[in-house]
Nucleic acid binder design. Structure first.
Lengths: 195, 195, 195, 195
DNA sequence: GATGAATGAGGTTTCATTCAT
DNA sequence: GATGAATGAAACCTCATTCAT
């Protein structure tokens, strides 16, 4: 499966650069260092390749976050680690993340499949949030919705940094997002119900 | 031009459904109820049409938020109105918003153009946040970054609701997002520095 | 529909020469004197084009035979005229007929469609044979089966002549086939039941 | 070779189903139950495989008819046996016969080769017909042409029955064809020159 | 003898764009 | 202003063949 890994790398690379539709299979092959026929030997076609990348990539992301969180019992700390982990993963896999985030918004043709995959990932976050509420650390709220919002917060900020080509200070960015998500923008001591 | 408005509606509709690259000019023409030649009579080509849609649409969005915020002097209240306005706009212009969010992260060729347009919009939010900090309502933080995060929060949640095809309760969703952004997920009274 | 007629001629020409599968759409376009895109503007694809040729061609053949037979009330004479007409049509439309006969034997994928078209043609012959039996000119026998056999007789002989590149003497060949079909190979006066 | 026989069976099967050009070597391998490389180990390529099938198959056909006719001295009876034998062979080797008949009329590249093979077979029939004429059993006529017509009669009827998927009553069908060929369609006692 | 991953020439099809009407 | 038949560059995909194992 040497070639499959080559294809994974090359495809992620070119898809992030040009988008799923504008990158051609010729380009994928060239970037991967395999012949065009090899792509079709291992995958049923372009759509199948894209689906594989999304699944494989999100699996890696899930695993990464899972490991970051593992061995910690406190939901709030888990949340912190998950956020830091995500930011680091985004930083280290810029191409994949850019590709992933392009997939998120996908059109109705491809949406069903991708959003299902993504939903599995949301659930990971939602489970932590749920636990936080049960421990009395987080306010009662719809955990799925909050997880979705958290993912939006992280990904849009990270993608902006990626697209601007900045070298991301993961520590700083992770902290900012964590504070933003947990404590909000309100100033300390301001009454919550003030508005 | 009667036809131009027809094209705007039809193009937004089909682009939201299939994406910029997968929707063909034939489909745009058919959905718009005009002949294909007519598209080229009014626009220089596909890219020109897309640029027109983005500019025109973002102008409408900016104007919508601007009017929602107008006549209010309190930054926190402005923020609330901006968020509610955005959610309502998403709800009322689902096709356009889906198209917008797909377009923003698109391939690097179109990115520069679109992200510049979007950045103008971020600035609107950032200005409000900046004012909030100066009034002592919001914590000191990078306003641009926070505005970006807020936009991610709003758009990812809204898009999820749109794609799920749910009838969105704007009031409720707007409130959730506003609370999330302003107060965070932490439970009332929990010490900020507890983690 | 100038171009469609051009395509009909060119496609029949090249398909007869190289076969349906080995003739490329490029070659069809070139032989027809139209651009490749034009083929796809008028037809949904190669299969659709082939189906059109078969239908259109068999319709012309049916019409030709119909006219040859028209204005004659005697079944035996109709049969004679039909056979002579078929032979003449084969002679004058060698390309189409070669293509047609290739289609007859087609594989199971394409067979259903083609054989239905061909069956319509068999019925024309069967109707004449049926009438001949009712008039007491022909022996009682399954008309459809006999029509199928007659078609086989005519087409295989004609195709052999075509493929050999012989200039066909229609008069002579028509007479041979007519005698063969009507009187058989047995010598005059030989007892039928002798074997 | 065990494998070669496997390939013969599998190849005939898939070629009859999809045609020579549309059946792929992958499909041949799969249907045969051997690896693709094995095909190329035993044959020089696709064309070589097809040529082998045709030669091998026609040899079997010739032999089958030869044996059916053997030990009989009367041309008319030989003809009857040849026809019955052919019908039975068609019935028992449907796939091969369908493949054979498709191949014969194929593109001009392969035509020359195949038609030469087929012509050898025609000669078998023509020899019998010739003998029949010399014995005074059959009318004087071009033997080759009549053999070609007889082959058309048999094959088109048989193929129709095969393709319709009917269980063929060989006895009945053989008799019908024999009568048709020998006595023609004309009613008993009708004057030959009546038309 | 037998295998199947890998190849790339060449096929089918798509679609943005043009232009005569 | 508006149209849609026509175009061809460029995309996706197929498949006979090779070759290291």
């Amino acid at each position: 499966m040497r070639k499959v890994e080559q294809i994974f790398q090359g495809a992620v690379d070119i898809f992030a650069e040009k988008g799923f539709d504008r990158a051609t299979m010729d380009e994928v092959a060239e970037r991967s260092g395999v012949a065009k026929g090899t792509l079709y030997y291992h995958f049923d076609g372009k759509e199948d390749l894209i689906a594989f990348l999304m699944e494989e990539g999100l699996e890696r992301l899930s695993k990464y976050v899972h490991e970051a969180v593992a061995g910690c019992d406190d939901p709030a700390e888990q949340l912190r680690r998950a956020i830091y982990g995500l930011v680091r993963f985004f930083d280290q896999n810029r191409d994949f993340c850019q590709m992933l985030l392009m997939g998120v918004w996908f059109n109705r043709e491809r949406q069903v499949q991708f959003r299902q995959i993504l939903r599995n990932f949301y659930s990971q976050l939602a489970a932590i949030i749920q636990a936080g509420m049960e421990r009395g650390q987080l306010r009662p709220m719809p955990a799925e919705l909050s997880a979705t919002g958290l993912f939006g917060l992280i990904s849009v900020i990270s993608l902006r940094v990626i697209l601007d080509g900045d070298a991301m200070d993961c520590e700083q960015l992770g902290n900012f997002i964590f504070q933003q998500y947990l404590n909000g923008a309100r100033i300390c001591g301001e009454k919550e119900t003030s508005l």
